[in-house]
Design a protein around this nucleic acid. Structure first.
Lengths: 253, 253
DNA sequence: CGAAGATTTGATCTGTATCAAGTGCAGTGG
DNA sequence: CCACTGCACTTGATACAGATCAAATCTTCG
């Protein structure tokens, strides 16, 4: 824990982060900083630092599957996160338990950029996830006098906004089959068109992302399988091979 | 048209802007600059200029009801817009005509901030609308060396993002009655809780904003009227008085 | 006044949710 | 190693919220 008390930041993000009740993940170990592999290390250099166009101090953390990284309404720590490996969901929740996942964040993605003092949404790890963390203030400090950096930063926020705009169209106006096709194409693109993709999220998370139920997601997958647009790798339903991306795009509106 | 050729920018935004086919608005006059009241004027000063913390050059335009300000996919002019009076919808469209309105922009709101060369969505005037226009580049130029301005600008984009996140929850997980209640409360707040509010948009626009049909919007209004949560001003169905904001908030999730 | 749009309301249809059951994989402990 | 247990996923039957189709009334404006 000593390295956590480095001069670069005082406490690990969400040091008291315990699994939340969402789906009662049976998780056992926290905080991640107690993990042995890899140990939290102070980190100096790109690519997160590229954002500011300067070398700024970062630190690395590990979150186990199902662990909350931060919670909606909680105090927004002064951190921005970049995923080294793994996957994260960010989501909002209604009082009665209905969920809406805003976005999935994969390797290389950044998230957690907020203005206010309270988090606008929750974030937790879908699988074991390593994140690099940078103090938000140090980005703005580092980019002082640098117009290029400002543009980079605005560009980052704008990318999130653009994704949200596309997703509003999906949530407001697409059919369930169109949603699932769009989801597959999005993941395919973000995973760089692998021959076989391993989805880090379960059917319920996909459903909460697409604004439908997990049964409807499952039925859509079955239809696309029967239409020979995709196939599962054996019995592992999260390993999917897209057989006809062009035809899949036709299913999307 | 002479004043349009001022040194501050070369061409009016969307100089060739004609009504689009959405609902075949029968509109007759364009460009707005040909209107007599008010004439386009070069404008120096706040509040748009406040964004950059400097005085920058602005110009004012007028758009008539139903007129497109810019179109999705079109060349993104180097402008940011602020509404002086009136109301604007920004929306995306699917090839088959399905719509999703991202946001309504009212007096004082800014919109049109984009990164790329192509507009990510369309914008058009719901009613006769006056906008102040600033060249995007001049904002970044003006804010050179000014961290405070950078924060302002990021804050603006983040506000849009926050609205989009809230709206994704609505579109993905709320019932039609919850959506309409949320819409009424949003408008009420943004219009500063007037005793009687005059909605600038019709039922179809509300529906396309909320991801439901216009009939469902109408039915929800009727339910809320029968429950004595709101009343219409005589026969003008767009003039609405909220009778019980607290109860309305209960209808929202 | 006449025509077109805006809104409401009713009847019916349907896509998706909900309820329910069964299979199979993964992790655990004996 | 295998059986046990819990979760993930699929599939089927049924219910229902909201879409669609339809029509009447009202509003607006030339």
């Amino acid at each position: 824990m000593e390295t956590l008390r480095s001069p670069h930041y005082a406490t690990p993000p969400k040091a008291a982060g315990f699994p939340k009740g969402w789906r009662l993940p049976f998780v056992r170990i926290f905080p991640a900083s107690q993990e042995k592999h890899p140990p939290p290390v102070d980190y100096v250099g790109p690519p997160l630092a590229d954002l500011a166009g300067e070398r700024v101090f970062c630190s690395e953390f590990k979150y186990r599957k199902g662990i909350e990284i931060f919670g909606e309404g909680g105090h927004a720590d002064e951190y921005v996160y970049q995923i080294t490996s793994g996957a994260v969901r960010t989501y909002k929740m209604l009082p009665d338990g209905r969920h809406q996942i805003n976005a999935f964040h994969l390797q290389g993605d950044m998230f957690g950029f907020e203005n206010g003092v309270a988090h606008r949404f929750s974030a937790d790890a879908l699988v074991e996830t390593h994140v690099r963390i940078i103090k938000r203030g140090s980005i703005l400090d580092a980019m002082q006098n640098r117009v290029v950096s400002t543009k980079n930063l605005i560009c980052f926020v704008t990318q999130n906004l653009q994704h949200a705009e596309d997703h509003m169209l999906l949530l407001g106006r697409k059919t369930s089959l169109e949603r699932v096709a769009a989801f597959l194409l999005e993941m395919d693109e973000r995973l760089a068109h692998p021959a076989m993709m391993l989805l880090p999220m379960n059917r319920r998370d996909i459903a909460d992302y697409l604004g439908i139920t997990l049964e409807t997601v499952s039925r859509a997958f079955s239809i696309l399988r029967d239409e020979a647009l995709l196939r599962f790798d054996g019995n592992i339903q999260r390993r999917i091979e897209l057989l006809d991306r062009h035809a899949l795009a036709e299913f999307d509106a």
